[in-house]
Design a protein around this nucleic acid. Structure first.
Length: 291
DNA sequence: AAACAACGCAACCGCTTCTGA
DNA sequence: GTCAGAAGCGGTTGCGTTGTT
């Protein structure tokens, strides 16, 4: 029993991949397909561990990888998705065709994270690098500690499963998005996708394959919202008919559903028509919605 | 020109989740 | 229901490159 030793303990090669190794891996996967990463190195004749092969393929060798600068539209989308999903890099990457989770994670840690928080990030790299190299990053005068975070809550789909909870609006939205992600996984299809009309095309970098970009299944989301918040005549919310959520009374619930109604009435959402993603993002961004 | 610091990114590590027996 | 192996994921590390003094 126990974990199988990783490559470092099996005398396998580590570090940067050579062009020759890349060629072997690509050629093997083109012939035999992806998967069975554990046994792939042996079958392909590579002196690498399966994890390493998988990572190299997914992050670098895959033919559909889009390399090059990240466009402003992509940046904007990453920021929005990060706001909604947190450090769920694979989920975020799933919404950016051709981009890998590793690339987005690196981009966030080196560029976007700093910009979004308006300061050099105290991210893992900065601290760990300083730690590992025994250097200090404080080359200038001491910097004031960062202000308390006022970000919107972040979705944690790995949250502990619960059967009955009291939800504030933010938590409700988190739960709904969790639900979406779970449905994605269970139904093996994409529910949460960039609408086709979203201007993601970037001249010179190829364009998004519109055939692959199916619209977000907003019907599910809106249905969940409406099922989750059924405000009764007595002023209290009733438990959703199809959920295990219990919504707090309006006394402690500033969100009474009228915002959603207004938003729906604005024409942004029309059943059977692709939804205005920006509009929903704005709704979710608004402080009113969360607080 | 040299030394050092900062940055960017590929790769690794270890934990969690999934899947099938 | 349980277990082990495989796969996936996010955090972290290491090193080459670029910028600054």
């Amino acid at each position: 029993m126990g974990r199988k030793p990783c490559c470092s303990k099996e005398g396998l090669k580590r570090g940067a991949w050579t062009a020759h190794e890349d060629k072997i891996l690509v050629s093997y996967i083109e012939t035999h397909g992806e998967g069975k990463w554990r046994s792939l190195p042996k079958r392909a004749g590579l002196n690498r561990c399966g994890k390493s092969c998988r990572l190299r393929w997914l992050n670098y060798l895959r033919p559909d990888i889009k390399r090059g600068n990240i466009s402003e539209e992509e940046e904007d989308l990453i920021i929005r998705l990060h706001k909604l999903l947190g450090n769920r890099w694979s989920l975020i990457a799933g919404r950016l065709p051709g981009r890998t989770d590793n690339e987005i994670k690196n981009y966030w840690n080196t560029t976007l994270g700093k910009r979004v928080h308006g300061q050099p990030s105290l991210d893992s790299k900065a601290t760990s690098t300083a730690k590992s190299k025994g250097k200090t990053l404080m080359t200038g005068p001491p910097v004031a500690p960062p202000p308390p975070r006022t970000d919107t809550p972040v979705i944690r789909t790995k949250a502990v499963r619960c059967t009955r909870s009291f939800f504030a609006p933010a938590q409700l939205m988190s739960s709904l998005l969790d639900n979406l992600v779970q449905r994605e996984n269970s139904e093996k299809r994409t529910l949460f996708e960039i609408p086709q009309h979203e201007p993601l095309n970037d001249p010179g970098m190829g364009s998004m394959d519109s055939d692959k970009a199916c619209p977000l299944d907003w019907d599910f989301l809106l249905q969940d919202i409406c099922e989750g918040i059924q405000v009764g005549d007595n002023g209290t919310s009733e438990e959703g008919s199809n959920t295990n959520l219990e919504v707090c009374s309006n006394d402690s619930l500033p969100f009474d559903g009228t915002m959603l109604e207004n938003w729906l009435a604005s024409g942004c959402y029309q059943p059977d028509v692709t939804l205005d993603f920006q509009s929903l993002a704005s709704l979710l961004d608004s402080e009113e919605f969360w607080f």
